[in-house]
Each structure stands twice: as structure tokens, then as C-alpha cells.
Design a binder for these strands. Structure first.
Lengths: 188, 188
DNA sequence: CGGGTGATGACAGATCCTGACATCAGGCGT
DNA sequence: ACGCCTGATGTCAGGATCTGTCATCACCCG
């Protein structure tokens, strides 16, 4: 495949994270990342549409999994319950082995507003996709959007807990707890 | 004050929105916006930290109003109720006169992912501020964050409705409806 | 009327990102 | 084994974003 070593995208992703952790995101140029794996800046931008995106590998698959899993949920459930089951079926993206890597990535994201912007857009995109699926299932507005957005809120809060130092519980477990907490907070 | 005409920031904001509507955001350079009001690109960047920000005037005041209004809510209420009242007290930012302008602005934002990113970050920032205030009031986690985020979800959905063509109801009215809908969706 | 203050202009430069064209490695058919 | 084709990469040029630095100008104040 490649001119030299294969897996250009993955090597760029790994190198980028390491460099961002060392010098910070802004202080690392796309050219430096590329050079550190023997490629050029131009090739970097062939693998990623922009510099931020090098930190968002797998987000397409995550979105697809989340959105598609809505289809597999049995009929007749309440909208939020549908979203909860979709979320639970995407926990494959958060195995224990990945927790340390996720913490490093979050360490970079959390101190850079530009990167947080991108993260929020990805989340919003997932929520929009889920909302659309719910509407296809016959859920009317605004219930569909509210359920989808609430589900992503639960996901975000759960993810944050999952990353806490010393936290051992799985995403599935934490998510279940957060859905309960949401019920208590909104509680009619 | 200014070298020539006063109100540089406001003139830049107005000119920017008009140009964005005409040619699109990407197709309009900061230099063109500045030139259209008799200023230079360098001065544009003295008024706004980046090109996107020219579309986010007032967001600081909005955030402050939202976050501070949490203080004015009587004690003893449920967290989500606190957020609902804070939201209701910030409806001054959405008078009927502003609806047309907001539609134009949204027309630009909605077709540009980079601008949506910024909008989402501003929302998240407001939610974070409200969450912090709730924690100061003694609301524990994760209830504080969940209530704050749910409140902003309601706001976003309500705002979207408020912008719909032909919509006549006020933000306060729509927000009330959306809080009820959220209760029904999460409904225990 | 002279000095101070704040906004602006002018200029250079780093970085991000894109388009266009050349080049190279490996697969594939003959 | 040979030559072609395809895809990834390299090279170069250039526009746009954003920043640092210093000069300039308008206005206010004493």
C-alpha cells in the first residue's frame, strides 16, 4: 500500500497524541506530527480533513453503532428506554483496555476549547442521528429530540465518571446509574 | 474614541452577517468584512479573537445572566426547577424584535459545522456555569450536571421552535412547554 | 498647547489548509 | 519477466487565519 510503512493513519494518530501530551496541541504543528512518522504535512491532510480530526478516530464507527442500534430495539418501548438500550449496546467502544488511552486523549481535549468544540459537535451529530431514527419509529417531536439529547447527556456524564482516576466500573454500569439519576432529577 | 466612526464592533458584526448571508461564511474573508466598514483585517482581530466570534456578540452577557439568575431563585426547589426559573428569567435576550435577526444568524450557523461547534461550546459553557452554581447551592453530583445539561437541552429545543417560520409564542411560553415534554419523556 | 491614552494602520511571519502535478511501490495481466 | 495501472506519497505554490511589533492618529486632560 503505502510508499513505505503501512498504517499511515494509525501511526499519525499515535504520534499526534504523544506529541500533544508532551508539548500541547497548539504547540505541535501538523508538519511535526507527519515528520515524526516519516511523512509530510501534505500527507497528514490526506489522512485527516483538519488537524483536530487526528484525535477523533473511530467517531464515525461510534456514531454508526449508536444510530443503527436503535433499529434493533424492540417496539413498544418508551423513547428514552430505546435510547438507553442503544447506548448500552455501544459499550464495546469503551473496554477497560481503552480507558488509559481515553484518559490521555481527554487530558489533551479538556484544556483546548477548539478540541472541545469538535467533541461537542460529534456528540450533537450522534444525538441528531438518534433523533432521526426515533422519528422514523414514530416518536413525535419534541419527544424524539429530547430523548436523544437526554441520552447523550447521560452518556457524557457517564463517560466523565468512567474516566475518573480509580474508577473501575464499566460504562454500561455507570450509564445505568446515570439514567436512574436523570429520572430522579427530572422526576415528575 | 475610534479613529473615525465609533462602534467598530457593532458595525463589523452587522456587516459580517450581511456578507455571510450573501456569499456564505467560508467565502467571506475577515479582510473583506473589515474593508466593508472602512477598517483593516488587523483591527477586525482586535475586536474579535477569531473570525467565528463576530457572530457571537452578547454571548458573554447571556451566560452571565443565566448563571447569575440561579442565585435569585428561592431555596428548597428541585434542581431542575431552579434551572427552569433561571432560563425563564433570561428571556429578555429573546424579544420579538430580535427573532428575525436570530433567524438570519441561524441561517448562517446551521450550514456551517465550524460555527455550530462554537455555538455548542457556548451552550456547554453556560451549562457548566449553571452546574457550578447548583453545586454551590448544595446540589450533589451527578444531579447538578444532569439538571444543568437538561436545562440547556430544553433551551436548545425551545430556541429551535422559537425560530420556526410563523411561530409567534414567546421563548418563556415555549420553554414551559418543553420542560413539560421533558418530564413526559423521562417520566418515571 | 503639550502629553497621555486608546484605537487604528502597516508589515512581517507562522500555521493551517488546498490545488495541481510529479513520483514511486506494488499488483495485475500478458 | 515485462509493462501498465492504481493508489499513496512528495513537491510546490498560494490563499486564509491569526499574531507580534511598531508607527500613527484622534481625542481628552491638565
Amino acid at each position: 500500500m503505502g510508499r513505505w510503512e503501512p498504517g499511515g493513519s494509525d501511526r499519525l494518530r499515535e504520534a499526534a497524541l504523544e506529541l500533544f501530551l508532551e508539548r500541547g496541541y497548539e504547540q505541535t504543528t501538523a508538519a511535526e506530527i507527519a515528520q515524526s512518522v516519516g511523512l509530510t504535512e501534505r500527507t497528514f491532510y490526506r489522512h485527516f480533513p483538519d488537524k483536530k480530526e487526528v484525535l477523533f478516530g473511530g467517531s464515525v464507527e461510534f456514531r454508526a453503532t449508536m444510530v443503527d442500534s436503535v433499529l434493533g430495539v424492540p417496539e413498544g418501548l418508551a423513547p428514552l428506554e430505546v435510547v438507553a438500550r442503544a447506548l448500552a449496546s455501544a459499550t464495546e467502544f469503551f473496554p477497560d483496555e481503552r480507558r488509559e488511552w481515553s484518559r490521555k486523549r481527554w487530558q489533551v481535549l479538556s484544556v483546548n476549547p477548539g478540541l472541545m468544540e469538535r467533541e461537542l459537535l460529534k456528540m450533537a451529530d450522534v444525538a441528531a442521528g438518534i433523533g432521526a431514527r426515533l422519528r422514523e419509529r414514530g416518536v413525535p417531536e419534541p419527544a424524539a429530540t429530547l430523548a436523544a439529547e437526554s441520552g447523550m447527556t447521560v452518556f457524557r456524564v457517564a463517560f466523565d465518571v468512567w474516566l475518573q482516576p480509580g474508577e473501575r466500573r464499566s460504562m454500561a454500569e455507570i450509564e445505568g446509574e446515570m439514567f436512574a439519576a436523570l429520572g430522579a432529577v427530572v422526576g415528575v
